[in-house]
Amino acid sequence: MRVSEGVPRGRVAEVYHPELFQENEEVIIFTREEFNRTYTSIQRQLDYIVKVDLHLDRSEEWKLMGYWPKIMRSVHRIDRDMDLIFKKEPLQSYLDAYLYEHIQSSQDQVPVAERELIPTMEASHFHPLY
């Protein structure tokens, strides 16, 4: 695609390669830093999926059941990043964590057995043997 860098000068912007564009052609302008962050974020997700695939042993199909949600999570993040290009929401790729993930935390779904493992004050003082 035709692409050029440029610098803003008040109401107008100067481009380094004006010959690429036609006169009166409509263009879309991003800041380079924000675009860079989104672009690398998408690339990172793609790399992650490729790595998951490379480390997957093809003879063990049952393991795919656990990796598939991870792959789909990356796909959701790519989708989110692509949507954010045309939205005014703050960029997710500035952060280490994704704030707007709609996946419920697994804490609510973990049954009582998991939660009881956390030692409480009463439990730690209870020494029936000593």
Partner: peptide, 18 residues
Amino acid sequence: MRYSYGIMDQRKILLYKP
């Protein structure tokens, strides 16, 4: 992300949201 449309005018871009 911040973005704006613009139009090419005499080898420069007129920004809609400068």
